[in-house]
Design a protein around this nucleic acid. Structure first.
Lengths: 348, 348
DNA sequence: CGTTATCGATTAAACGATTAACCAGATTCG
DNA sequence: CGAATCTGGTTAATCGTTTAATCGATAACG
């Protein structure tokens, strides 16, 4: 039968020293003889001592917890993000509290405030499209796109788009339809810009904004992609895998073979992107790296903050480079059908 | 310029009363004249008082935080779950700390221990397939399937499967292939059982276990569904939308029209299920209700726990009924092709 | 009228960790 | 040799909240 949770004084009593010494020994801050420190660590370990978060938080004013706020927690990317952040935070000694800003923009602020009330030391925000984070009295790391002011760390969406654009251009496509979500999203605008740059001036690239389409036709209405193919479009570059699979199935259902008759590409490399048929050519973010940088930036600010003081500076500004995206070359993108025969007229 | 964060004594000083009275007034526990209580609440509000989680946690031994552990945080269902739990927890006054048990089974225990060390009051676990939760000294709510021992709350996967089975049988299908993931998953076994029951004895229902298939052929290998169709299978009942979209695209790519030539159904109603073509007939869990029940069960145990005492009882046992699933009837399921002409020989 | 309840509020003691201030003894230095 | 420095520790205060114990005063009761 275990006794109650051991605390500092339990260790202190066991060794006949003062709690202060134990605290110093374990934190390595004060002056303790290395011999005694060793013994203290030993007994602490053998007693199964684990510091009380509450006690420490109360005294130091730091909770050791980071908040994570996403525009829409239902975002299919959330698992990847959450996992990466949790991992990075855990490695840095922080816990991660989730905050949901379901729905409207004000909710985002609400969620942030709730997290602050809970005493988080810092917040990682992936902002709702078109939102600027107000200056709250708490360190904030923003993950968006490098172009966003106040951004802390992000994937290089522009360069990613550019690479994808080049990929399609090299395959010979000359008329591409970009399937975008919301024109308010900085990320999406960057991706569009990059795509256009990569496609170059000779390639026609129209954009279909799904948000507008949804307003006009309804959220689940067909996108009319078969008609686009008849008008000469040979590749569909979706700005998210979610849209890409939507496009892919719509084309397939219309009897248009992918990639034989039309190519489809996506962004994000969501979990199912590799198992569908044809598997999806897409761009993957290095969430691990992004999370690591975001957490590091936050931790740096938090740790050299005068303790009780409420920081006036809101957003953490990091001068780190944008994290490159990785092109996942798979089966959904292929040569432009017109050029197909010229290259190799195999498997029809 | 705001002063420092107001605490109880700030309010007490402002009104010339003792902190204890303020605490009592705000918590409504002690005996305070209603008139004074009113004034206290007013000034508390006008000063923007928000209780210190750390102080309270230290004193009461309760952190007001629940841990959320999922077998695989990368699970595409995670967003829904996390959002629902966060919502329910928030409504009940709790925060949600995420714990990631990425990978192996031991990690699950690791994650749980980390959460406990962080001082969570209780943990919600969606266990890794085939895992039993060891008795940890902390209230736990398990979300799995009603058949699991120690289960707290769950969807009625069996009844859901049964409904889907009936749906397919009524449509005239007589040979169905069930696409399952792992035979170790209680949830999946329940779904298979339900499906078979719903399909009845006259319908042939084979099961393709993807886990075995992946071991034999590789994770991304085609499932060979076209061959199955040639062998007479007219419907594919996937145990998750992830698998369903995999099957759907494989069939489409093979030139098999869905639902004209074969039906496909799923489970989970993931975010993209309604926008693909054809939109997916699937079963949706009532995550909101499940989360609410799980949080309630936890909160109940937590709140009448003798305060400092470490609970010996591990799992929370709730006698609640399984939460029903909801059949989302969409376009991917249709009449059995053989009977199609008999019913109505329209479009295509 | 003396004895209890009751009400309304105060006192003071935790909870567990951190840390500035202090102190006794041993070194070192001018 | 006296003073300053260093070493290895201890004391005590503090973070903000909760809560059991207490206390004066007023009302109720036999």
């Amino acid at each position: 039968m275990k006794s109650e949770k051991p605390n500092l004084s339990a260790i202190a009593q066991a060794l006949g020293v003062s709690v202060a010494t134990v605290s110093n020994a374990l934190s390595g801050k004060g002056r303790v003889s290395s011999e005694l420190a060793e013994r203290i660590r030993d007994t602490a370990h053998s007693l199964g001592y684990v510091p009380s978060v509450a006690g420490r938080a109360l005294r130091t004013g730091r909770s050791g917890v980071l908040g994570l706020v996403l525009p829409d927690i239902a975002n299919p990317l959330f698992p990847q993000i959450a996992q990466a952040i949790e991992h990075a935070a855990s490695a840095a000694g922080y816990g991660v509290l989730i905050g949901d800003s379901r729905g409207a923009v004000e909710q985002q602020t609400q969620a942030i405030l709730r997290l602050i009330d809970r005493g988080v030391d810092g917040i990682i925000i992936i902002p709702r499209r078109g939102t600027r984070i107000a200056d709250i009295g708490c360190p904030v790391a923003v993950i968006d796109t490098p172009a966003t002011p106040g951004n802390t760390v992000a994937s290089d969406h522009w360069a990613g788009g550019e690479e994808m654009g080049r990929h399609l251009r090299v395959l010979g496509h000359r008329s591409v339809l970009i399937l975008a979500g919301s024109a308010l999203s900085n990320v999406q605008n960057d991706r569009v810009g990059g795509l256009r740059a990569g496609l170059g001036p000779d390639v026609r690239a129209d954009v279909l904004w799904l948000e507008r389409h949804a307003e006009a036709e309804g959220a689940e209405a067909p996108l009319g992609l078969a008609a686009r193919v008849r008008q000469g479009v040979t590749a569909f570059a979706a700005l998210s895998d979610l849209t890409a699979v939507r496009a892919l199935t719509e084309l397939q259902a219309a009897g248009i073979a992918v990639p034989a008759a039309a190519s489809v590409t996506g962004f994000d490399d969501l979990i199912w992107s590799s198992v569908i048929t044809p598997s999806l050519t897409t761009l993957r973010m290095d969430m691990g790296e992004i999370a690591r940088q975001a957490v590091q930036a936050l931790a740096a600010v938090i740790e050299d903050l005068p303790h009780g003081q409420v920081t006036a500076l809101g957003t953490v500004v990091a001068e780190r480079a944008a994290v490159p995206m990785k092109l996942m070359l798979r089966q959904s993108s292929g040569p432009c059908p017109a050029e197909r025969e010229l290259l190799n007229g195999d498997e029809q």
